[in-house]
Computed example of a mutant assay.
Amino acid sequence: MSLVNTPVKPFKTTAFKQGKFIEVSEADLAGKWSVFFFYPADFTFVCPTELGDLADHHADFAKLGVEIYSVSTDTHFTHKAWHDSSETIGKVQYAMLGDANGSITNNFEVMRAGQGLADRGTFIVDPNGIIQAVEVTAEGIGRDASELLRKIKAAQYVASHPGEVCPAKWQEGEATLAPSLDLVGKI
């Protein structure tokens, strides 16, 4: 079953963010767009390139009012150690959620059976805590923050313009579609 159009399940965890440990729960999502960015493990190979890419685009996400939550089954202590020892991860300003017991990873259905590691899962969550987009990739396939930004802009546009949809490769400012009987077979 897809998680699209379902609410984020309750959770509470400790995260590392901007030099501090903070508590994060589903209540923190209220009224804001959010991205949950699951990855297998700290101190690995593809993962730091992805988190670094998100860090490089952090200001763009902030302009859209989007909070980023990276999540792995490591602890918040491990996140701090990685942040302090890696130039790439040292750029991260968003919350790095610890999920040592796997509850959040399981809630989002991206836990690898028998491994205790998350798949590469990306979830766009609307201000009501409802999942609007899901992407899961295989271990060796890194994600692209600029494509994620495009998807968020499309999700935000559709949310604020009922009756309109964004076609393939839609970019902000381009034409949208208004589905209707008259449009059937005309595209």
Rank of each mutant, 00 (worst) to 15 (best):
Q115K: 15
A145D: 08
V46D: 12
I130P: 02
Q115G: 01
L64P: 05
P179R: 06
D119F: 06
G121H: 00
C47L: 05
A41E: 12
A30C: 01
A100T: 10
G129P: 08
I141H: 06
E135W: 00
K91V: 08
D99N: 11
S160Y: 00
H79C: 04
D74L: 01
K80T: 02
A118L: 07
L181C: 00
G90E: 07
W170I: 11
V71W: 09
A175G: 12
M96S: 12
Q18H: 05
G98D: 07
G121I: 04
S70H: 10
K32V: 06
S34Q: 05
K186C: 01
V46M: 03
D182R: 11
T105P: 04
I22R: 03
N128H: 08
D144K: 12
D144Y: 09
V165P: 05
S103C: 03
A81P: 01
G98L: 05
G173A: 09
V71H: 07
P48D: 05
N101T: 14
F11I: 00
H76Y: 15
G185W: 05
A62S: 14
R112C: 02
H57N: 15
T49Q: 08
K9E: 15
G52I: 09
H57D: 15
E164D: 13
D182Y: 09
H57G: 06
P40W: 11
A41G: 11
I152N: 05
M1K: 08
Q18D: 15
G90I: 10
W170S: 01
F123T: 03
R143I: 08
Y39E: 08
L64A: 09
N106K: 15
S25N: 09
V46N: 11
S70C: 11
E147V: 13
G121P: 04
Q115A: 14
